[in-house]
Design a protein around this nucleic acid. Structure first.
Lengths: 226, 226
DNA sequence: CACTGTGAAGGATTTCACAGCG
DNA sequence: CGCTGTGAAATCCTTCACAGTG
């Protein structure tokens, strides 16, 4: 333990975004290995299973402390505990999901949404037919009730699966409560929020275009070889 | 024009992935500006609208060539054409979408899927009730017919919205045709494919965990200030 | 004069390479 | 001996700062 706190531990260097992404992937993998009864795993094996260099894996894991056994590898159960500890929040995040369209429902019903780190506490929509029903066991409220429900249920994180035009309005309403800390935005809107509100955009169509551009570049390269 | 080819033009430096992502965002923004009748825009204005530094915008746009007017800014219509040209494929990408669950349908019905650069040519599922129906106007085939339909419709890109356990099997079937160049994978599976097949993973739950970890870090920081 | 275009600097992330330990 | 942990090097990406131009 160090002088900086003990829930995000040890090293002076802070854990960066790409590293966090991989830590989550390691946790997933280790859960499977535990189920399969695998006792020990090396950075090389992890790397092969996740398409990463072993040096990358070791660097990432070194942020947790020195938990590997030289000449052997990592104890699967132990490493999983450590990872889960690092990734665990101070208390369970309470999330509101806004927009029960196909995407919103897809997320809600996904297995991965059963987590020890977070839970969707309420869902919101503007369609009157949906209000009062429940989705994946979560009660659906009207978007106009956002401020009230955020306060009542102590929601601090929002997932926005609303149409682009609605996103900023929804965000403004929610942010006024002063309780929102983070937003995962699936709309194409470029949201403006006060500092202190973290926004993370997930833009599926940009990911598709990035892939297609890479394909174009490699086709071009192929052509030049003739 | 240069000696390296002319569809991905000019500069010696190749356009990187993060830059491509922003170019797509610029294109979106410029389409709106054209609609709004805005004739000219500066890098500073673009940056403010997209939450980017103006220097970043200028660097990105400089890959297209020198199309700005010093002291003035960029001609909106002209810049949009240039961007669209850079992002355009040699010929329209023909995409197969595998897995008509909520996520698959969400994508299919999204406005952004109406593109001049790509089109979904066929969709696939294993549920017999879905075969033969059409989704967003696309015919649905059984997954077993993937190889045949890929050949018939000249599909080179796959979007995988299937459950994790099915993803590798589907990919293997498709890759055997030798026609698949790229895959956008929404499952949590870590796919193995031969070199020459580009895989891009979109993992929504990892994005959520990254956001939550950042929130945890900033909460921690806040606590230290007391 | 207000902007672009761009080398150079700065930061961030990955990879290398090897010392050190079980 | 085999594998971890980690400084140092390499690579990748962003930002600065300013010369140059319409």
């Amino acid at each position: 333990m160090n002088e900086m706190g003990f829930l995000i531990p040890s090293k002076k260097e802070r854990i960066t975004d790409p590293t966090v992404g991989r830590l989550v992937a390691y946790r997933r993998l280790l859960m499977r290995l535990v189920d399969d009864g695998v006792p020990v795993v090396s950075s090389k094996e992890i790397g092969e299973m996740l398409r990463l260099k072993s040096s990358q894996v070791r660097k990432d894991l070194s942020y947790l402390g020195e938990f590997g056994k030289r000449g052997v590898g990592y104890d699967v159960g132990r490493l999983l505990e450590d990872l889960a500890g690092i990734l665990a929040p101070f208390e369970m995040w309470r999330i509101g999901l806004v927009g029960i369209g196909r995407l919103g429902e897809a997320l809600l019903n996904h297995r991965s949404f059963l987590s020890e780190n977070y839970e969707v506490t309420a869902v919101f929509d503007s369609n009157p037919d949906k209000i009062g029903r429940s989705y994946a066991g979560k009660p659906c409220y009207h978007i106009d009730d956002l401020p009230r429900i955020i306060a009542e249920k102590n929601i601090t994180v929002l997932i926005l699966t609303v149409p682009q035009q609605a996103a900023q309005t929804v965000l403004d309403m929610a942010v006024k409560t002063g309780r929102i800390e983070g937003v995962l935005n699936f709309s194409a809107a470029v949201l403006q929020a006060p500092p202190g509100v973290q926004i993370k955009d997930v833009d599926i169509f940009i990911e598709l275009e990035k892939l297609l551009f890479k394909l174009k570049a490699s086709e071009q390269k192929k052509k030049q070889n003739f």
